[in-house]
Amino acid sequence: MSTQLLYGGAGVALCVLGLWAFLVHRPLLRKLIAINIMGSGVFHLLIALAERDGAPPDPVPHALVLTGIVVAVSATALALVFGRRLDEQGGVPEDER
């Protein structure tokens, strides 16, 4: 139980850290890293939930995490493409910063 609590608690801590960094930082790359850390926190928590004392772990949270990782990677890739396009066109317009 304590292992599960440790893993789950670490997940929540990562999640809050990621959220904080996402809200505070302006540069796109930092925002992307922050949102990925937040996502990792959620995945961490889900993995911790899969533990069943002694018995084989619950497969459903594993499936959820797998889906979540795929989605997070695609979204990060799309955001990076947007960032590159913006850079090619001279960056974010001044009034939008």
Binding site: C15, G18, L19, F22, L28, K31, L32, I35, M38, G39, V42, L45, L46, L49, V60, P61, L64, G68, V71, A72, A75, L78, A79, F82, G83, R85, L86, Q89, G90, V92, P93, E96
Partner: peptide, 29 residues
């Protein structure tokens, strides 16, 4: 540029929304 900036913001806000939503799903599960 305006469209790209707006879309990027839309994507990031959407990601933040999904992560928050997923955290709620984890709690329910």
């Amino acid at each position: 540029r305006a469209a790209l900036t707006a879309s990027l913001r839309y994507l990031l806000v959407g990601l933040l929304g999904s992560m928050t939503y997923l955290l709620g799903v984890a709690l329910i599960y």
